[in-house]
Design a protein around this nucleic acid. Structure first.
Length: 592
RNA sequence: GUCCCGGUAGCUCAGUUGGAUAGAGCAACUGCCUUCUAAGCAGUGGGCCGGGGGUUCGAAUCCUCCCCGGGGCGCCA
């Protein structure tokens, strides 16, 4: 519809240009907007105002000239000039109804497009360290990332979903060491810290660590047992004893590595890693979030990719040595300061891996790379882009989307997020409490860069306060109408329904036609701008229009023409609601 | 100090990328179930769009300076 009007305007403007009425050297960007107010027609164009300056004419005069030579079209009922120079288009009733057969024919493909033209896009999201179960903060990234990926796929991009597994860093060593220490506990070895303390203050203390340790103990009995005397020998004090907790945990890690030697340590390490990774994978799968690839950070180092990245950076001349460390001169590319790549102890930093990772993303030929990070990582963006630029890649190909925190509320009170306290923090617990549908829905209901107040009571409430139920209810109502139809021994002649759509001329039906027609535009906007919340709001609007319609008119009426037509409209509404909910990862129930 | 995000109805938030008279939901008040699901619908009230200045036909939207709230600024990952 938009394209049709755009083409009409193009023809008019071109002929005005060749007649010399309008300057030929301006190539106007014709913009068609849907009107907010029905009295302004269905579509409005502001082109006359845009052309006023270059043409040195009054906007309304230009509008008059355009409108008088505008070619006729079967879809345009009338054209009006209004306000400062808007050209308003009124669509014919017949053209309005055409959206219904279009929807029914396309079915679950309605709204999809080839806007992306099959361009390869990578979406990397969640990528939480495998050191513990996912918490509710990760949940937002998961729901958001999955929906953005699905939206991009829906508008024709070739989407690759990826989870970057940080299986190489110090955090993983801390996990492995924590598991081993818990295992020692199961072997009956007491960690004889001074005072009340019984575990390193920087260790992972969650219950899942005990679970992993139990597996370790079951499979290896006491084979990895060492005495506390061996372990504590030469160990610097932990924080409660007046020492430095970082030094303490690092020394413990080294102890574990030397006492267990490489093969045993690796066993503990991999057991912890795989246990947690399986848990995360399972959690996400139940949440409707799946990946094409789980990309291992360790594999980057193993394959030499990190070294390759460092060499390329060095070759580009943007590195230098200072204080025994190797630095990247990221300040040359707009970062606020330079960053360390290789520490004075010879170890590469996480940043070095990340450069290698992003370099490899580019090498894999993605035309666009989207990283979804927590907003607390925003300071990290400039240095990654700097690295890409230094490597000769185009930093504009990388789009980093930042997701703000989600704050849970229960009975109007903020839920405290402490790992120790009993209040739930994991994604799994949230899913269990409010259900997958509500969790997916509420997570993407707000703009991603907006702090999210996640109201648990609202997510679980079965009332019109809850926008998800409101939308699902609209879908269930349509299904119910068709059930009733059957119970009454009637049937729906779809052919006749489409033929009789002209019967539908109430304001409620008109509103539905318009809104149904908007769906493809909403999808495109939501996808291109990475804003799933646009789809949420649209579906709420559509549901609202339907509920209004439902209350204002009886569908199962005596008049067969009207009944069939209304049922066809019902089908179209159901289809669009189902398509939209599917993209959000939310179910479309047939009854509630 | 600096950088990022936010500030719109009592509350939670939209606002079609600069368009016409700023919109929803909740909360408050008033109506509607012998009818296809009342998990619904209709109606009323409620606004210095944080503040000042600028850009132009036109600003909640863009620029700038302040004010307020949240967050980031490691040889951690």
């Amino acid at each position: 519809m938009k394209a049709e009007i755009t083409s009409l305007l193009q023809q008019a403007i071109q002929s005005l240009q060749s007649d010399g009425v309008l300057p030929a050297d301006v190539s106007p960007n014709i913009q068609i907007d849907r009107t907010r107010d029905k009295s302004h027609g269905d579509f409005a164009c502001n082109i006359a105002m845009m052309l006023a300056k270059p043409a040195k004419m009054k906007p309304r005069d230009i509008a008059v000239k355009i409108v008088t030579i505008l070619p006729d079209s079967p879809v345009v009922e009338k054209v009006e000039i209004a306000g400062p120079g808007f050209i308003n288009f009124f669509i014919t009733a017949n053209a309005q109804t055409m959206v219904v057969p279009a929807i029914l024919e396309a079915g679950d493909r309605y709204g999809r497009s080839d806007l992306g033209k099959g361009k390869r896009v990578q979406v990397e999201f969640v990528s939480a360290n495998p050191t513990g179960p996912l918490h509710v903060g990760h949940g937002r990234g998961a729901a958001y990332g999955a929906t953005v990926a699905d939206l991009l796929a829906a508008v024709g991009f070739d989407v690759h979903r990826e989870y970057y597994v940080n299986d190489a860093g110090r955090q993983m060593d801390i996990l492995a060491t924590s598991v081993w220490l818990r295992y020692l506990g199961l072997c009956g070895v007491e960690l004889d810290y001074p005072g009340e303390q019984d575990f390193p203050s920087n260790g992972y203390k969650g219950d899942y660590v005990w679970d992993i340790a139990a597996t370790l103990h079951r499979e290896n009995a006491d084979a990895m047992q060492k005495s506390w005397a061996e372990i504590s020998d030469g160990l610097p004090d932990d924080e409660p004893a007046g020492g430095d907790k970082e030094l303490h945990i690092d020394a413990l890690i080294n102890k574990a590595k030397t006492l267990l030697r490489d093969d045993q340590y690796r066993l503990v390490f991999d057991l912890g890693l795989n246990y947690i990774l399986d848990d995360i994978r399972d959690d996400l799968e139940h949440f409707g979030v799946t990946y094409d690839e789980w990309y291992s950070e360790r594999s980057l180092a193993d394959s030499g990719a990190v070294m390759k990245a460092l060499e390329r950076l060095q070759a580009s001349g943007h590195t230098y040595e200072k204080g025994g460390a190797i630095w990247f001169k990221s300040s040359d590319f707009g970062d606020e300061k330079d960053r360390v790549l290789v520490r004075d102890n010879g170890q590469t930093t996480y940043f070095a891996s990340d450069i290698a990772y992003h370099m490899h993303k580019m090498e894999r030929g993605f035309e666009r790379v989207i990283d979804i990070w927590g907003a607390d990582h925003h300071g990290y963006v400039p240095r990654v882009k700097a690295a890409l630029e230094a490597l000769g890649d185009d930093p504009k190909k990388l789009d980093v989307l930042l997701v703000q925190f989600a704050i849970l509320y229960r009975s109007g009170e903020k839920v405290q997020m402490s790992t120790r306290s009993g209040s739930f923090v994991t994604l799994r617990q949230l899913r269990k409490e409010v259900g997958n549908d509500a969790a997916r829905f509420f997570y993407v209901m707000r703009k991603s860069e907006q702090h999210l107040d996640f109201d648990l009571d609202l997510a679980m409430s079965q009332s019109n306060d809850n926008p998800m139920y409101y939308i699902q209810y609209a879908h269930a109502r349509v299904c119910s109408v068709f059930r009733q139809l059957e119970e009454k021994g009637l049937s729906h002649d779809a052919q006749n329904g489409l033929a009789e759509l002209g019967q539908l001329d109430t304001s409620h039906e008109q509103a539905l036609f318009t809104n149904l027609g908007k769906y493809p535009e909403v999808l495109e906007n939501a996808a291109i701008n990475h804003e799933p919340h646009q789809l949420v709001h649209y579906l709420r609007d559509l549901a609202n229009d339907f509920h209004t319609y439902y209350n204002a008119h009886q569908f199962l009426v005596e008049d067969v023409a009207v009944r069939d037509a209304r049922l066809s409209l019902n089908q179209a509404v159901r289809q669009v609601l189902a398509n939209g909910l599917k993209l959000l990862g939310v179910s479309a129930p047939e009854s509630m």
